[in-house]
Simulated scan of single mutants.
Amino acid sequence: MSESRRLHWIAAAPLLCMLLIGAAIGWARHPRQYRADPPVTTALDQFKLMPDRIGGTPPDVYFSLGKPYEATAFDLSQGKRLYSWFGCSSCHGDGRGGIGPSFLDGWWFYGSEMVSVVASIRDGRPQGMPSYGNKMTSDQIWQLAGYVRTIGAYSAPYTAPSRNDDKHTRPSENRAPAAGLFEEGPAGVRSDRGVQP
């Protein structure tokens, strides 16, 4: 092999390595599922709530799927899009509250568990939270609930939704857990605010 040919291969080797590493990362990345299968959607709607409708048990299929609505950047980004699209910010603002309650102060009227948030979105709640069960698919409700939970998270999640293109009023969801923005309330239950996460 001639010297010039050998130098071309040496120069191309790092590029080839970077290309292979990029392909491996892309292959290992969590695949996007744009729509859940109908049996999965039906199973996701079969969760159980406590008698007071605060807290409950997610369906088994949610665990067998690996909690995708809380763990994948695609689902969190979709939830963020839905938060804007359905006008959640008109009541809850950027998570700090307003007409509706805050997600950041540590007090959740109906519990901070994923099932409680899904039930609040799907069925609505007294005193102002409308029902979105007939306006969103089951997938969308779970995606929105996953995003709402990242807004009020007390520890930074590993996955993050997409970045905002509009003016930032606070750091992004995975950079500023709620504990850094507000003091935690006293332990226990406040009758006016519900349970603490």
Rank of each mutant, 00 (worst) to 15 (best):
83 Y>N: 11
6 R>F: 14
80 K>F: 00
38 P>E: 14
118 V>G: 07
49 L>A: 06
185 G>A: 05
105 D>M: 01
183 E>Y: 08
71 A>I: 10
67 K>Q: 08
30 H>N: 15
85 W>H: 13
49 L>P: 08
47 F>Y: 15
181 L>S: 12
19 L>D: 07
124 G>P: 03
112 S>W: 00
138 S>C: 07
79 G>R: 03
109 F>I: 02
192 D>E: 12
190 R>C: 11
192 D>H: 05
47 F>G: 07
63 F>M: 02
164 N>Y: 10
21 I>W: 13
90 S>N: 10
71 A>P: 04
44 L>G: 07
76 L>T: 09
53 R>L: 11
2 S>G: 13
148 V>R: 09
136 M>P: 08
119 A>L: 08
188 G>C: 01
21 I>N: 10
65 L>I: 05
84 S>Q: 14
140 Q>P: 12
55 G>C: 11
4 S>V: 09
188 G>V: 01
65 L>V: 09
126 P>C: 00
177 P>I: 02
114 M>L: 11
45 D>S: 15
93 G>Y: 01
96 R>Q: 12
195 V>E: 00
165 D>Q: 07
169 T>V: 09
19 L>C: 09
116 S>Q: 05
134 N>A: 13
102 S>W: 01
140 Q>T: 10
3 E>V: 13
98 G>C: 00
36 A>R: 07
157 P>L: 02
186 P>K: 06
22 G>C: 13
123 D>A: 05
179 A>H: 06
56 G>M: 12
103 F>M: 11
100 G>E: 03
122 R>V: 04
79 G>N: 12
69 Y>A: 06
29 R>Y: 14
123 D>I: 02
90 S>C: 01
135 K>T: 10
187 A>P: 06
149 R>S: 06
73 A>P: 05
195 V>R: 13
